[in-house]
Design a protein around this nucleic acid. Structure first.
Lengths: 108, 108
DNA sequence: TCCATATTTCCATAAATATAAAATTATACT
DNA sequence: AGTATAATTTTATATTTATGGAAATATGGA
């Protein structure tokens, strides 16, 4: 992942409405939600939400598909994962003893 | 973590210079780097970099300490971790069967 | 075809953010 | 005290981004 891609993704998340959209879609799961449901749920006018959804899609964080008259948006889990990985890549020059306790999750 | 905190953190990362700073500090490890070294390494004037460093610190992504005349900045691994966790909290309403393959990392 | 619904594009305005020069503060050394 | 170094604050300007009304596009049903 290029730094400009990561930057665009973080930029997409740097706005309350858009962050709320992603959280909503992460909660909703792969089934996703229609654009109208999203703008309704978050109380934003349709044009405003359309602008934000396009931004999130351009950033590779959500996906869209058409179903009848609706456009269904869903979280792009792969994209989110790539972004997280980018942030911690090459951590401590590869020496995980330095930061491991802070960064590595216990596994179940 | 409040959504406004997460938003502020993503906002801090939504800018190439600042994202480069965090990557640089993540690579540098807990020892960190002096403000002057950072602005030198990234080719930005001191006031500009000072503005960006303050932004990253305010967002809880880096820490600073004074050493003589220098101010040493280092990645705040706990803060980064909290941010990542926020993004995927309550994923698929807790049913990891839906998105697990995309989100959960294999453990070594 | 005509109408209602769903969403987007266009556009103008408002608001937030980045940049860097100049001035300021703080520390160390002689 | 005097001087050099390190970093920050102040300030003004330039740039980017968000917002939502009005108009346009696309689909499905009567």
């Amino acid at each position: 992942m290029e730094i400009s891609d990561a930057c665009q993704a973080f930029s997409a998340l740097s706005q309350t409405s858009r962050l709320e959209v992603l959280k909503l879609l992460v909660r909703a799961g792969p089934a996703g939600l229609a654009a109208g449901k999203i703008s309704g749920a978050l109380g934003a006018p349709a044009p405003t939400m359309s602008f934000h959804l396009k931004e999130l899609e351009r950033a590779g964080l959500i996906l869209s598909r058409k179903e009848g008259r609706s456009v269904i948006y869903a979280a792009d889990y792969g994209g989110v994962r790539d972004l997280v990985d980018f942030l911690l890549a090459d951590c401590c020059q590869g020496d995980k003893r330095l930061c491991g306790p802070y960064v590595i999750k216990e596994c179940a």
